[in-house]
Nucleic acid binder design. Structure first.
Length: 664
RNA sequence: GCCGGGUUAGCUCAGUGGUAGAGCAACCGCCUUGUAAGCGGUAGGUCAAGGGUUCAACCCCCUUACCCGGCUCCA
C-alpha cells in the first residue's frame, strides 16, 4: 500500500497510508491524543484535522489544552452560537465571531432592531447544547469571492467582509488592524473559505475548526453588549454576546472561579466594605471622596512618595487647579487635548480651564527666572490634582475617573544628561513600585509616529536610544510599539502584574521636545550660550486614585501592615481588662502604630469576626492571664493564634515587619 | 457619546397598580465573654429626581442624574 512519511515535532518520522489525515496520525500515536486533538499544524499552518496530509510534511497535533487548541475550541463554539442565534432569532444577521482571551464573542444584528436581553442567553445556550449533541460536522469548502457573495447574499456584513478581503489589503484605506480583523475571519487571497455545519448554516471562516460540534461543550455565555460594526463609532451598533469555552469541565470551572475571585477583589466593592472611599451621586460622575480609612492609606502613600522624592533630588512645587486659557494655548492643550478638558469658565476678562495636566505650570516655574546649566537636571515634583473630561460611559471606579492626583514630575535636563537621567529614573521608578508589593514588571517603548511628530529626527533617535538603553541596562523585558509615541516624544510605559496575574499600566516616562519649544524654555550653558532643555514627564503611581485602586485589588483589601488603616485591634476579653487594653493601646500608639480598642460590650467571637472582616493585620486579645503577665494573645491575619506574647516582643516584631516591608 | 441592564433602610437584597419587608449594621437594655456571628428591644425609607397615564404609581410611560457590563475613546 502506498505510504507517505511525515515528521513530528520531536524530529521523529512516521509512515502513514496515502490520504491519511491528522486524525489518522493522532490515532496512530495514541487514543488519548486522538481524543484531545482539535486541529493540526502542517508545515507551519493551522489546518483541520480532517485535511489530507501532504507527503514529507511537518505535522504537529494541536490539543485542546494548549493556547492554540483553546483558540480553536472557542472559535468553533462561536460558530455554534451563531447557528443557535440564527435558529432562535429568524432574520438575524451575523458579522464577526472571533476567539478572544479566555473566550469568544459573536456580533449580530437582529431583525427589526431587536436586542438581546440577558434572559435570552439561557435559551441560546440550550440550543447550542442541542447543536453540540447533534454532533454536526464542520465541513470546509473554498469558494471564489463571487460564489461567496452569492452564498451570503442575505448577510450584508458577511458580504462586506468578502468584498474587503477580495479587494485585498493593498488598496484599502483602512488601518492595518481592521484588515487583520477580517482576514482572521476568512483567510486571505483569492479564495474564501467557509465552514458548513448544516444545510442551513454556513459561516465564513479561515479555520481551522474541530471536526464536529460534538467535540465542544464546556462553555458558558457570559454577557451581552453593544458593539460597533468594525469598531466604528459612526457605524451601526451590533449586539454582541460574549462567551467562554474550555477544553474540560474542570478548566471551565476553574475559569469561572477565577472570575469570582477577581470580583471579590473589585476595588469598588472593597472600598465600600472597608469604608475606604465612595462616589456619592450628589458629587457627580467620576469623582470620589476619601473616607478616613482610605484617607490614611493615601496619606501613607503620599508620605512615602514625598520621602523618596526628597531623597531622589526632587524639588517640591505647588500649582493651582485652574489656569487661564492662554496657558493652554501656549502649551498646545487647547489644540491637541481640548476634548479631554473640562469646559471653560468665563470670568472677568478671561477664560479659565481646570487643568488636565500639570506640565504647563511647571514650565512656568522653570521660566520664572533665567536658568543655568548648573541647576540641571531640575526635577520639579508635585502631587498635582487634575481634571479630565472622560466620556460618561468610560468611567470605572477609581480606574477611570474625572478628578485625580498625579505624582507628577517634570525634569528639565540637557541633551548630555538625558541618558543618565533616564537610567536613574528607571531605577527610581522600579524601586518605588517594589515597595508597594509589585515584583513582576514589563515595559513598552513607544517610538515615533512618522506621520505626526515634532522635533528633529536626530533628537528622536537620541531619546529613543536613551530609553532603550535604560531598559536594557535595567534588564526590564519590553516590547517596542512602533509609531505609538505621542507627537512630542518617545516614552516608556511600565506594566505591573498583580497578585492574580492581571497587568496594569502604571508608570510612564515620556520625553518631550515640544513643550520646551512652545514655552521657549532656555538655560545658559557653560559656553555662555542659551540652550533649550529637554523635558521629561514622569509619573510613578500615575494617578494616586488609580494606583490605590490597583493596590486594593492586588492585596484584596488586606493591606500590608505598613499601610493598613488599623494595624492592630485590642479586644479586652471582659470589661475588667479594659484598662489594661487601653494601656497597651497607648503604648503601641506611642511607638507610632495605628491601634484601636473595642470594648467588651459584644462577645469576643463577634468582635474577632468583625476585625477579621476588616482585614486588620493583628487582633490582640487580652484577658486575666495577660493582665497578670503583661502579655497579649496575638491573632495575626492569615496566621496562628499565639497566647502569652510579651508586649515588648510584639512591638519589636511589628517594628521589624514594617521596616522590612518598606526596605526595598 | 453609543448599546443593554440597573437604582427600594447605612449595607446586601425581597416585594405588589391600592403609599413597603428581611438579614446585617446602628442605637438602647441584658449578658462580661479567651480567638470568626449571645439574647431582647428601638429607630431607620418622598421606593434616585422630575414629569405623564390612572380614581389610585414604588410598580406602566417619558426625561434627567448616577451605577453596572460592553463598544468607542484614553494626544
Amino acid at each position: 500500500m502506498a505510504e507517505l512519511t511525515i515528521s513530528l515535532p520531536d524530529g521523529s518520522q512516521r509512515s502513514l497510508p496515502r490520504g491519511a489525515t491528522a486524525t489518522t496520525l493522532a490515532e496512530a500515536i495514541g487514543s488519548r491524543l486522538a481524543k484531545a486533538a482539535v486541529a493540526a499544524v502542517v508545515d507551519g499552518a493551522e489546518v483541520d484535522l480532517g485535511r489530507p496530509l501532504p507527503a514529507g510534511a511537518q505535522v504537529a497535533i494541536i490539543t485542546g489544552d494548549s493556547d492554540e487548541g483553546r483558540h480553536v475550541l472557542r472559535h468553533s463554539t462561536a460558530h455554534v452560537m451563531a447557528q443557535a442565534v440564527t435558529q432562535l432569532f429568524p432574520g438575524a444577521k451575523f458579522s464577526i465571531g472571533p476567539a478572544i482571551v479566555d473566550g469568544f464573542y459573536y456580533d449580530f444584528e437582529l431583525a427589526d432592531g431587536r436586542t438581546f436581553a440577558e434572559a435570552d442567553l439561557s435559551a441560546i445556550e440550550a440550543r447550542m447544547r442541542d447543536i453540540i449533541k447533534a454532533d454536526q460536522p464542520f465541513v470546509r469548502s473554498e469558494l471564489s469571492p463571487v460564489e461567496a457573495l452569492q452564498l451570503f447574499a442575505d448577510q450584508p456584513y458577511k458580504c462586506d467582509i468578502i468584498q474587503r478581503v477580495s479587494a485585498g489589503s493593498s488598496n484599502t484605506d483602512d488601518p492595518a488592524e481592521a484588515v487583520d480583523e477580517v482576514t482572521s475571519e476568512v483567510g486571505d487571497g483569492d479564495t474564501i473559505s467557509v465552514y458548513r455545519n448544516t444545510p442551513e448554516f454556513v459561516d465564513l471562516c479561515r479555520g481551522p475548526h474541530v471536526p464536529s460540534t460534538g467535540r465542544l461543550g464546556h462553555f458558558k455565555l457570559m454577557k451581552v453588549a453593544g458593539a460597533y460594526w468594525r469598531g466604528n463609532e459612526k457605524g451601526p451598533m451590533l449586539q454582541r454576546i460574549y462567551g467562554t469555552a474550555w477544553e474540560t469541565k474542570a478548566a471551565l470551572e476553574e475559569h469561572l472561579h477565577r472570575l469570582e475571585e477577581a470580583e471579590k477583589r473589585d476595588h469598588r466593592k472593597l472600598a465600600q466594605e472597608l469604608d475606604l472611599l465612595s462616589f456619592p451621586t450628589e458629587l457627580g460622575g467620576g469623582l470620589a471622596v476619601w473616607h478616613p480609612k482610605g484617607g490614611i492609606i493615601r496619606k501613607l502613600m503620599e508620605d512615602y512618595s514625598r520621602e523618596r522624592h526628597i531623597n531622589g533630588g526632587y524639588q517640591f512645587v505647588f500649582t493651582p487647579h485652574l489656569a487661564n486659557a492662554n496657558l493652554f494655548k501656549t502649551s498646545g492643550h487647547l489644540d491637541f487635548y481640548k476634548d479631554g478638558m473640562y469646559p471653560p469658565m468665563e470670568m472677568d476678562n478671561g477664560t479659565y480651564y481646570p487643568k488636565p495636566m500639570n506640565c504647563p505650570m511647571h514650565c512656568l516655574i522653570f521660566r520664572a527666572r533665567q536658568r543655568s546649566y548648573r541647576e540641571l537636571p531640575l526635577r520639579l515634583f508635585e502631587l498635582g490634582t487634575v481634571y479630565r473630561y472622560e466620556r460618561a460611559g468610560t468611567l470605572h471606579g477609581l480606574m477611570r475617573i474625572r478628578g485625580f492626583t498625579q505624582d507628577d514630575s517634570h525634569i528639565y535636563c540637557t541633551d548630555e544628561q538625558l541618558q543618565d537621567e533616564i537610567a536613574s529614573l528607571l531605577d527610581f521608578v522600579m524601586s518605588v513600585l517594589r515597595a508597594f508589593g509589585f515584583t513582576d514588571f514589563t515595559a513598552n517603548l513607544s517610538t515615533k509616529d512618522p506621520q505626526k511628530y515634532v522635533g528633529s529626527d536626530e533628537m528622536w533617535a537620541r531619546a529613543t536610544d536613551a530609553l532603550q538603553l535604560a531598559l536594557d541596562k535595567y534588564g526590564l523585558p519590553h516590547k517596542i510599539k512602533e509609531g505609538d509615541a505621542a507627537f512630542y516624544g518617545p516614552k516608556i510605559d511600565i506594566d505591573v502584574r498583580d497578585a492574580i496575574g492581571r497587568t496594569w499600566q502604571l508608570s510612564t516616562i515620556q520625553c518631550d521636545f515640544a513643550l520646551p519649544e512652545r514655552f521657549e524654555l532656555e538655560y545658559v550653558g557653560d559656553d555662555q550660550q542659551r540652550h533649550r532643555p529637554i523635558m521629561l514627564h514622569r509619573a510613578l503611581f500615575g494617578s494616586l486614585e488609580r494606583f490605590f485602586g490597583v493596590l486594593v485589588e492586588h492585596y484584596a483589601g488586606a493591606f500590608p501592615t505598613w499601610m493598613a488603616p488599623v494595624q492592630a485591634r485590642l479586644l479586652p476579653v471582659a470589661s475588667a481588662h479594659q484598662d489594661y487594653a487601653d494601656q497597651v493601646a497607648t503604648r503601641l500608639r506611642a511607638e507610632g502604630f495605628r491601634v484601636d480598642v473595642v470594648d467588651a460590650n459584644e462577645q469576643l467571637g463577634k468582635r474577632i469576626r468583625a476585625a477579621k472582616l476588616e482585614k486588620i493585620p493583628y487582633v490582640l486579645v487580652v484577658g486575666d492571664d495577660d493582665v497578670a503577665a503583661s502579655t497579649l494573645g496575638v491573632n495575626p491575619r492569615g496566621g496562628e493564634v499565639e497566647r502569652g506574647v510579651s508586649l515588648e516582643s510584639f512591638i519589636a516584631g511589628l517594628r521589624t515587619e514594617v521596616a522590612d516591608q518598606l526596605a526595598q
